[in-house]
């Protein structure tokens, strides 16, 4: 990087040749110090011993991971068996996130397709309508949902008025409420990437399929879906990953029985009941799961591009 500007004439596309490192430095420093190093420290913390008022004692221990995976009886003297408490919370989170992803896809794909096939100005208007909720405060959207589905809320009043139900539905504090919250929170995250993919779709492909006597739906199944797959995968990732670690929907719409990973982690850092090393370990496990999903995504994306 010692080359001065005089002896290195900038190449055609790189006006600021040689300055790359210096221009990049602020990002490296900020993200490095305040995100990469913290994740490293969190990893270390997951192997420390907990202190009772929150915080840690600097003594190496596998207690957090042990507590997560193994049950050793009430007094810790029984032969270890699998501990289901936390695994079932993780399993529930995966299940809820997967269902939310599926529902978002079912609603999101037709929406994205419909918008992308509108004419110019109409299209930007539709797209704008979908974009707004994307940027509206997630907390406020979750509160709105809570307001809507609570026992004496507008949804129940409306259904009672129609006579569809005779007693208010108890939706809050159920798995359904959490599912509704996740679906509602991340629906726009599904529509936008699929839209971006469909927008680049070449309709000549559909015409070719139609010329070969493909029906509309088989064209969708065998021509359109494989072509816009990168957008679909991106959308699924954008819904699945935040749903997996969601905190607001399970906390505000759910109850004790609908605990998800996010709530489990949060609980370890609030108040005196907390257990920092255990929270760090749970975060590490969540992070590894997300990394696995992202690796899968990167592979699928490279494959799709190679085609």
């Amino acid at each position: 990087m010692a080359a001065g500007p005089s002896n290195a004439p900038p190449s055609k596309s790189s006006v600021y040749h040689g300055l790359g490192t210096r221009l990049m430095l602020p990002s490296w420093i900020v993200i490095g110090i305040f995100l990469v190093i913290p994740v490293g420290i969190m990893f270390v913390y997951s192997f420390l011993t907990k202190e009772f008022r929150g915080g840690v004692i600097w003594e190496f221990s596998l207690a957090s991971y042990d507590q997560f995976f193994l049950y050793r009886g009430l007094f810790g003297d029984e032969p270890p068996t699998i501990e289901w408490t936390y695994l079932s919370i993780f399993w529930r989170s995966i299940w809820q996130a997967a269902l939310a992803t599926f529902l978002c896809l079912v609603i999101g794909f037709p929406t994205a397709w419909f918008i992308a096939t509108r004419a110019g100005r109409q299209r930007s208007f539709w797209l704008f309508l979908v974009t707004i909720p994307y940027w509206v405060n997630l907390l406020i959207r979750t509160i709105s949902m809570k307001f809507l589905i609570r026992e004496s809320g507008p949804l129940n009043e409306f259904l009672l008025m129609l006579g569809v139900i005779s007693e208010p539905l108890q939706i809050l504090n159920t798995h359904l409420a959490v599912q509704l919250g996740l679906f509602y929170s991340y629906l726009p995250f599904m529509v936008l990437p699929i839209y971006a993919s469909v927008e680049r779709y070449n309709y000549a492909l559909s015409e070719a399929a139609a010329d070969l006597y493909a029906t509309r739906w088989s064209t969708l199944r065998y021509v359109i879906l494989p072509t816009v797959k990168p957008g679909i995968i991106a959308g699924c990732i954008l819904v699945f990953v935040p749903s997996l670690g969601a905190f607001l929907a399970p906390d505000l719409l759910g109850g004790a029985k609908t605990f998800m990973i996010g709530s489990l982690i949060e609980e370890q850092f609030k108040g005196s009941a907390g257990n920092w090393p255990f929270g760090a370990a749970a975060s590490m496990i969540l992070l590894s799961m997300v990394l696995v999903v992202l690796t899968f995504y990167a592979r699928a994306q490279t494959k799709a591009e190679a085609r």
């Binding site: 040689g18 790359g20 490192t21 993200i31 490095g32 935040p242 670690g245 969540l286 992070l287």
Partner: peptide, 29 residues
Amino acid sequence: RAGSFRGRSISFGLINLPLMVPEIVTAVA
């Protein structure tokens, strides 16, 4: 605009890292 430099390929991942790490994990870390 700066052509190739050391660490360019990893920089893109680094900048997008806050989007990839789940929010709750970033919060804990």
